[in-house]
Design a protein around this nucleic acid. Structure first.
Lengths: 154, 154
DNA sequence: TTAGATGCAAAGACTTTGCAGTTAA
DNA sequence: TTAACTGCAAAGTCTTTGCATCTAA
């Protein structure tokens, strides 16, 4: 977990008068230490249980809700049928997702042009933008050509 | 329901050897006759029950799945916590959504520039685009200024 | 000291499914 | 005629919650 992430967590906890407990430490560790992987509630539960087997689902759901409300975790829809969570908005507040239909890998990307356009469109429609997201579903060219795919490192 | 929609439905049913039954007719009517409103499974259930009270949830979920798989209905995430369905991709295959945080209205918009950009980004990343979507959450200017909002016609 | 946090187990919300009977083509 | 469809009720999946107990600050 980076220093920045730890600070943001601290700031949120201070702001809301939340207490740092062992169960929460475990869940935070599970959510933010792995190199920015997305996860579902259940995947996070398994990660947390790998750190401390006594992790409970109730506490996990309650903690995730706090983090989402505090903006530290974002709910994203990766087309899995369950909500996924993205811990990377702390480091990259404006990224978007490309989901590969073939290898089901998720690529994050940022694009200033799209951001600006989204902004214009929103204002033209009479609104002030709050959050914007682009989701692209696509097929992996490499997989199609070579039968294998660099993104399959997952 | 427009002629075009009816034809697409027919085409799908022909292609897959599906049978047109009364329960399905009711559900199709509920899904596609109302001026393009989005709906959740439960909202569709109520619409269908208003046409025919004997509509069953099992058949409804099964029919919705067929329509989604056939591309006639798109699953969209309007931030409600449940999947919503959008019947308007038949008429506007490339539209996006702006959801108002204040009045929770949903505005559909198309933008060629964004489409082109998305296409470029996707190819640059080594993929071939399959479907693209933009979701903007925003605040209604009119509501902020005047305390009321033209979009509240909902 | 005490407001906040926890974990269990039960409840809730939403969706899927097995099956016996029904029906469109 | 028969493969497809239906409705029920039961089961499944994911998430939330009431409550008695515990604990960080």
């Amino acid at each position: 977990m980076t220093k920045e992430v730890r600070e943001k967590i601290q700031a949120l906890f201070d702001l809301k008068g939340l207490r740092m407990t062992r169960p929460r430490e475990v869940i935070l560790e599970a959510a933010f230490s792995d190199r920015g992987d997305h996860f579902t509630a259940d995947e996070l539960f398994e990660k947390a249980r790998a750190i401390d087997r006594s992790t409970s689902r109730a506490t996990l759901y309650r903690t995730v809700a706090l983090l989402v409300e505090g903006g530290l975790l974002h709910e994203i829809d990766l087309g899995k049928g369950v909500t996924s969570y993205d811990p990377n908005f702390i480091d990259s507040p404006n990224h978007n997702h490309l989901v590969c239909i073939d290898c089901s890998n998720v690529i994050e990307f940022e694009d200033l042009h799209i951001s600006v356009l989204e902004d214009c469109i929103t204002r033209r429609l009479g609104f002030t933008p709050a959050s914007k997201s682009v989701q692209i579903r696509a097929r992996c060219d490499a997989l199609k050509r070579a039968g294998t795919c660099v993104h399959l490192v997952d």
